[in-house]
């Protein structure tokens, strides 16, 4: 049952990220890609809203902390994302639904690997839900 998943990807708009995004579009056409300026600029409330409205997963794709074009951008959001995960947990959503991926803009393989893992996790959550 891999059909009809609602997954949002928020990539930061580093120049060299185009290649990855193309690849993701090819492999996972169901993922909705919403570009943002920087992962540090990501409004975490939106993640909460989307998941509450029934999205299956949210992925934020940003540069490694310390490597961010805006210096502290992704580092500060790393901490905030931790809070989002715990907010989800506290309210009875699976925290795995929210995931931040930190990669160099030019990297493709690593991103795809992690994305695969993420998709598998989502599938297993669903499996669990069915079993229960």
């Amino acid at each position: 049952m891999a059909s009809k998943k609602l997954i949002y990807l928020f990539p930061c708009l580093a120049e060299k990220r185009k290649k990855v995004l193309q690849k993701i579009e090819q492999e996972y056409p169901e993922i909705k890609i919403v570009p943002i300026i920087c992962a540090g600029r990501f409004n975490t409330d939106i993640a909460l809203k989307l998941i509450n409205d029934g999205a299956d997963g949210i992925v934020v794709l940003g540069c490694e902390p310390g490597d961010c074009h805006y210096r502290e951008g992704s580092a500060i959001s790393e901490r905030r994302f931790l809070l989002v995960k715990h907010t989800l947990k506290a309210f009875g959503f699976e925290e795995e639904r929210f995931q931040a991926l930190w990669h160099k803009p030019s990297e493709v393989k690593g991103v795809m690997n992690e994305l695969n893992l993420f998709m598998e996790k989502l599938a297993s959550i669903e499996q669990k839900g069915v079993e229960e």
Binding site: T44, I46, N52, D53, L83, T87
Partner: peptide, 23 residues
């Protein structure tokens, strides 16, 4: 721009309200 709480279903709305508040 994003109307956070725009669902006619109050209980769904309430969860979001408290999630955002605690966040």
């Amino acid at each position: 721009n994003v109307k956070y709480l725009d669902s006619e279903d109050a209980s769904k709305n309430n969860i979001l309200y408290h999630m955002i508040r605690f966040n």
